[in-house]
Design a binder for these strands. Structure first.
Length: 698
DNA sequence: GAGCACTGC
């Protein structure tokens, strides 16, 4: 009886899934798409939101025989959550256990097996895979999804895939001819012993042609098509509800005030439905929240049913969750959000979107190496993405707080990340793939020449590149294998020589994540007091180490008496009491175990310097030497490499102490040039430990 | 004596 009922439920569920699949816009063109993929080695698919391309196309290809010879279909996503949730959904649609036919792989999580044929992953992870398998030989098809977002990973991946595809096509011809592939080289330096070993692994295997599919949600198919030599582009219809666009008559001088007025206008004049407001940062969000709360009591009592919630990335997860909870009965919800609500999270119930048209972006100044955040106008594509958030569940309205003619003056799309970021990691990865001519590399959009040169200089000074700009052996190759900023990778290599790798692994993991300290404004004093027990007079690096060790000790003790789940819950409580951000700490723990595994595999010696922290600080000097600063008579500091005048950030344990010579982790420009995560070093160490930079200056 | 958007390996 029970089995029969279960079967009925199961059958209904399958039927529902099938109905849903057939109702998607892409279902109407399944056969056509299969033909297109068969006939074209590269295909561009433009599909708007709701077309079903991400979940359906891989299934069509699987059923269409594109995995026949044991090949895998790989689908890349810019974000982890997308890779994970889509994989789960597709496994369910296929009626299989996740990790079997359908799986996913993201950093720290691998839900695949040898039987996986449809594999969702992040684009960054596929790039890492390429280091081990430069021809990506396990894949018969690679689909690059959300290519319009143009993350730095996507851009590098596109260049690599273009090359791999060409090589595999030639390799396949060669395999059938039994002659040598003269032009079928991915590498320029096949004689290098490192890449040679990789090549040998690949030669045994038969290279088969690779199908490439680039999927984009916006109308810029042209760029991708041109890049791939006039590749064929097909459009797939999306499915969205209509969104009414409303503009202001005149430009607004104060977009925050305009946003505030619009919130109340919608609340008082429009039908039910929640409001999503796009703001540029935490400060704006908090000030609008305060202003709404202040004005609410002035409304007639029956009109006060407005509940304000906010979301931004650095908000602790439990507070983020509040935006997903429905407002109390009869209340309208206003969500104040950064562009986290543009793509990363989807909040249900939104009918109204308010878009002031501004966004905070990170930029990169190659001459100073500083990456300041600035507020700029959104692009057209971004404005469209924002307005689309109003039409997910029904018809909606979008209030753009600028005149309509201003919209047409906006840039079509946001500047690709590769044009505004530090390129040292990109260069390291390309070099590790045997691509030595960075300036000649076929990027879809060229990075600035100056940015390339600056990053090469940095890699050279770190010892990752030889005089001929090749990856050095072993340092350069080791650095390329580590999933870290090059300076951090270098510090691990130095630490193994100075016998303090145990300590440096922890510190590097902590420096790699968002600040682990959580100090809410209203509890500033309390949080400072909590921090005191961990503080080290030597600086922030040791302080970080103390916090990590204390948390680790607490967790280990907790595990002795309770289950793993309970122990982790206890740790979160411990974090709260000590004003530590548990999400950041968890992230650091994950990175720590990954890089520890990495260095062990590389054969580096993991040992501890015990209580003598001298080698640890020497290691900091030897690897962060470009971030050294000297005290000036007035108590400020001069950064030695850039000559910039900087100040220790007030959050540093050395803020009052002001030692003569310090090294720092990063320089942030707000009102002043602040340096963060600072430690005291001996000035004389610089010339001794970093002669490649300091000996020349004497 | 300060406030930093969002991702990713």
């Amino acid at each position: 009886m029970g089995i029969a009922i279960n079967y009925v439920i199961f059958a209904r569920r399958r039927q529902k899934i099938e109905q849903h699949r057939k109702s998607l816009p892409i279902a109407a063109v399944e056969k056509k798409l299969l033909e297109e993929v068969s006939n074209n080695d590269i295909l561009i698919i433009v599909g708007e939101t709701g077309s079903g391309k991400t979940t359906q196309l891989p299934q069509y290809l699987f059923n269409g025989g594109f995995c026949r010879n044991g090949g895998t279909i790989g689908i890349t996503q810019p974000r982890r959550v997308a890779a994970v949730t889509v994989a789960k959904r597709v496994a369910e649609e296929c009626g299989v256990t996740l990790g079997q036919k359908v799986g996913y792989a993201v950093r720290f999580e691998d839900e695949t097996s040898s039987s996986t044929r449809i594999k969702y992953m992040t684009d960054g992870l596929l790039l890492r895979e390429a280091l081990l398998d430069p021809y990506l030989s396990r894949y018969s098809v690679i689909i690059v999804d959300e290519a319009h977002e143009r993350t730095v990973h996507t851009d590098v991946l596109l260049g690599l895939l273009k090359r791999v595809q060409k090589t595999r096509l030639q390799g396949a011809m060669v395999n059938s001819d039994h002659t040598k592939a003269e032009n079928g080289r991915l590498f320029e330096n096949e004689n290098d012993h490192q890449s040679n070993s990789v090549l040998k692994n690949c030669r045994g295997k038969k290279l088969s042609p690779l199908k490439l599919i680039i999927m984009s949600a916006s109308l810029d198919a042209q760029i991708f098509s041109e890049y791939f030599g006039g590749a064929r582009a097909v459009h797939v219809q999306g499915r969205q509800y209509p969104v009414d666009m409303l503009y202001t008559h005149q430009p607004e001088t104060d977009y925050l005030d305009a946003a505030l007025i619009t919130i109340f206008q919608i609340h008082l004049e429009e039908g039910p439905g929640d409001i999503l407001v796009f703001l540029t940062g935490q400060e704006e969000i908090e000030s609008i929240e305060r202003l709404v709360q202040e004005r609410l009591p002035k409304l007639p009592e029956s009109k006060r049913k407005l509940s304000v919630v906010s979301i931004f990335a650095s908000l602790p997860s439990e507070k983020q969750m509040k935006v997903f909870m429905p407002a109390p009965v009869g209340f309208r919800k206003v969500i104040l959000a950064t562009n986290i609500a543009e793509t990363s999270v989807t909040i249900p119930g939104i009918k109204y979107v308010i878009d002031p048209g501004m966004v905070k972006v990170r930029t990169y100044d190659a001459s100073t190496g500083i990456e300041p955040l600035i507020i700029v106008k959104t692009s057209k594509a971004q404005a469209l993405q924002r307005s689309g958030r109003a039409g997910r569940e029904g018809p909606g309205k979008c209030y753009r707080l600028y005149p309509e003619n201003e919209f047409y003056k906006l840039k079509d799309s946001t500047t690709p990340e590769i044009k505004r970021c530090n390129l040292s990691n990109v260069i390291l990865q390309l070099k590790a793939l045997g691509i030595d001519d960075i300036i000649g590399f076929d990027f879809i959009e060229e990075p600035d020449r100056m940015a390339i040169i600056k990053s090469m200089e940095l890699l050279f000074l770190l010892g990752a590149l030889t005089d001929e700009s090749k990856l050095s052996e072993p340092v350069g190759h080791q650095m390329a294998r580590l999933p870290l900023d090059p300076i951090y990778s270098k510090s691990l290599i130095v630490a193994s020589q100075l016998n303090c790798l145990e300590e440096m692994l922890i510190v590097v993991a902590l420096l790699s994540v968002e600040s682990i300290f959580y100090a809410p404004r209203e509890k500033l004093e309390e949080s400072r007091l909590a921090l005191r027990s961990f503080s080290s007079a030597e600086g922030d690096h040791l302080t970080l180490l103390n916090v990590y060790r204390a948390s680790d000790e607490f967790l280990e003790k907790s595990k002795l008496v309770s289950s793993k789940e309970k122990a982790e819950k206890n740790l979160r409580k411990w974090c709260k009491e000590n004003f530590i951000n548990s999400r950041s700490l968890k992230h650091a723990r994950d990175i720590h175990s990954q890089i520890r595994r990495n260095v062990e595999q590389m054969g580096l010696r993991v040992s501890s310097c015990g209580d003598d922290m001298l080698p640890f600080h020497q290691c900091l000097a030897a690897s962060f030497f470009l971030n050294a600063a000297l005290k000036q008579p007035d108590g400020t500091y001069r950064a030695l490499s850039s000559g910039l005048m900087v100040q220790i950030h007030p959050s540093s344990v050395l803020f009052r102490m002001k030692p003569e010579c310090i090294i720092f982790d990063e320089l942030v420009r707000t009102n002043k040039n602040y340096i963060r995560n600072v430690s005291r070093i001996d000035y004389l160490w610089l010339a001794e430990l970093a002669p490649q930079f300091y000996a020349l200056q004497e």
